[in-house]
Computed example of a mutant assay.
Amino acid sequence: MHKLTITIVALLCCTSVHANNPHYEQLAAYAQTGIFHETSDQAVSYSEYAAMADNITWLVIMSRRLEKFIPDTLEREEFLRTVYYEATRAGLDPQLILSVIQVESGFKKYAVSYAGARGYMQIMPFWIDLIGHQDHNLFHLRINLRYGCTILRHYLDQEKGDYFRALGRYNGSLGEATYPQLVFDKWLSTWR
């Protein structure tokens, strides 16, 4: 009887895990095209940034606003170029991404949440299995931002452009107003 109970519990656990997989498999197929194999911690180059940006005005304005969080000029500019590139590549507003990062990690590259989320955009390690590669380091600047922007873009598409619901899904707090409102407040007061 004991073995039968263990077998039933194991089957139920496997069933619930597999029941969620179709959703994640769809995300994986959609998102894997956006995640690349690069494992370096290099920022976007000036030429990559220039290919997407009309001028450097955005970089100068955002650099002034970000200075209190990232005092080093070179690190700040590399960070901003990469945010701009990855956000624009995913069809997202770079200032929205700055707001998400401020709320998620306070611009701390090596932030780890109590749940185990990592880096600037607080990416959960399970995303590596779903949309990435085992050699991806979620603390690497470009990888972290690529994952975060790809995931947020997916949720925004899934929610048909509803930023409030997409941000709730991103944070795992769908249905609660606190997180999306924090991001909107930062977006409007600091980064717009």
Rank of each mutant, 00 (worst) to 15 (best):
H2M: 12
I6S: 13
T7C: 12
T7Q: 15
I8E: 13
V9Q: 09
C14R: 13
T15C: 15
S16T: 15
V17I: 15
H18L: 14
A19I: 14
N20E: 14
H23I: 12
A29V: 11
A29D: 12
A29Y: 10
A29P: 06
T33W: 10
F36P: 08
E38W: 13
D41F: 06
D41Y: 09
V44S: 06
S47I: 14
S47Y: 15
Y49S: 00
D54F: 11
L59M: 02
R65E: 07
R65P: 04
R65W: 07
L66F: 01
E67L: 15
I70Q: 03
E75K: 07
E75V: 06
E78K: 05
E78I: 12
E78S: 08
L80I: 04
R81Y: 15
T82G: 00
Y84K: 00
A87G: 09
T88I: 05
G91R: 00
L92G: 01
D93T: 10
D93F: 09
D93L: 10
D93G: 14
Q95C: 13
I101S: 02
V103G: 01
S105T: 07
G106K: 03
F107Y: 06
Y110D: 14
V112T: 09
V112A: 02
Y114R: 11
M121D: 04
M124K: 05
M124T: 03
P125T: 10
W127S: 02
W127G: 00
H136D: 02
H136Y: 05
L138R: 01
L138P: 01
H140Q: 11
L141Y: 01
R142P: 06
R142V: 06
Y147I: 01
T150I: 07
D157N: 06
Q158W: 09
E159G: 00
K160Q: 13
D162C: 01
F164C: 02
A166T: 00
A166P: 01
R169W: 08
R169S: 03
G172K: 03
G175M: 08
G175N: 01
E176W: 14
T178Q: 15
P180N: 02
V183Y: 06
V183P: 04
D185H: 12
W187I: 11
